[in-house]
Design a protein around this nucleic acid. Sequence first.
DNA 1: ATGACGACAAACTGTCGA
Length: 258
Amino acid sequence: MLIATWNINGLGARFEFLVYWLKARRPDVVGLQELKATADNVPIPALEDLGYHAAVCGQKAWNGVAVLSRHPIEEVQSGLPGEEEAGARLLRVKTAGLDFTTVYCPNGKDIDHLDYPRKLAWFDSLRDYLGGSLGADESAVLCGDFNIAPTRLDTHDEDRLAGGIHHTEAERERFRALLDLGFVDLFRELHPETVKFSWWDYRFGAFHRNLGLRIDFLLATEAVRERVQEVETDRDYRKKKEGLIASDHAPVMARLGA
DNA sequence: ATGACGACAAACTGTCGA
């Protein structure tokens, strides 16, 4: 079974590219972020034709998350409780035997911006919400765009960027607090020393110079981690495909055994 | 190296992203 997370940067702009990727990789379950679309803008019949069920937590223009699954989906939670003002950023479902949550965590903009303390507070809310509802032996996945580079291995320039947005100790504490709930970072578990990014700026020729960040994660509980065979960043799909423009994020995928 | 890119809403420019 293949699970994945992907910030697609606009469902309307990316749908054809998304279909292309779904056909190529055939993931069983995928968490999508940054739909920038409402639920009724999601082309459900086209997804059904490809064999996917869909659950959507959307809003106009910004944010928005969804789960696509080749297995039936039971929606558990749409929106992070207490953080409604931050937008459509969390969706939790049961599918394929998993407690599967996908999140689009706030960016924060800059450490001097009002959005930065709001970002930290949002992570506190996420920890409190999950901490109160996560079963110890559960097969749970928490995936998405976390907008935090957890360690110096997860950024192209720790020396220059440390202390700035995505690289502050306060953000990194928030990330570790999620791990403390019983999650592990699947990519880092399998590749303790590997520098591989999941996001590259559209500007500066950043992708081709590999000036990126690893901010998209598949976190999972031990029951899932035991099943993991491989984890990879689908870097090839950060590239233009048949004239279609890619997202600025690459998908991150994990192969699970039975 | 902070400009370059791209999406979106609304309007042909501004805001946001990370």
